[in-house]
């Protein structure tokens, strides 16, 4: 599968409210097992169950402006691009 987009997560801004986790149409967001510097479990991108499309629904529902959302000009197959972005 190829991803059409990706998100960059401002980890310490996240309050772990999970609104983005429930709203992401691709179900690619989940809470991390570890805690951020403010004591919340922040959201992470986990693309095992689908691929981010860069739809920005997560950014629309997030109360804490955690996401920067990108779209690729062509679908990208490699996770290395994600590693660069994040």
């Amino acid at each position: 599968m190829a991803a059409k987009g990706t998100v960059v997560i401002d980890r310490n801004r996240c309050k772990g409210c999970e609104l983005c986790v429930y709203h992401c149409p691709q179900h690619v967001l989940k809470l991390d097992e570890t805690y951020n510097t403010r004591g919340y479990r922040p959201v992470i991108l986990d693309e095992r169950s689908g691929q981010c499309t860069g739809c920005a629904v997560c950014a629309v529902v997030c109360p804490d402006v955690v996401f920067t959302v990108y779209r690729f000009p062509q679908p990208v197959r490699t996770p290395a691009v994600r590693a660069v972005a994040n």
Binding site: G5, N12, K15, E18, Y40, P63, D64, R71
Partner: peptide, 22 residues
């Protein structure tokens, strides 16, 4: 090559808000 679809607006400061989660 990546097109920015959403980024933090300039009119917001970098401050963390004190609001409750969600």
């Amino acid at each position: 090559a990546m097109q920015v679809v959403y980024k933090r607006p300039e009119a917001l400061t970098e401050a963390y808000t004190h609001y409750c989660p969600g």
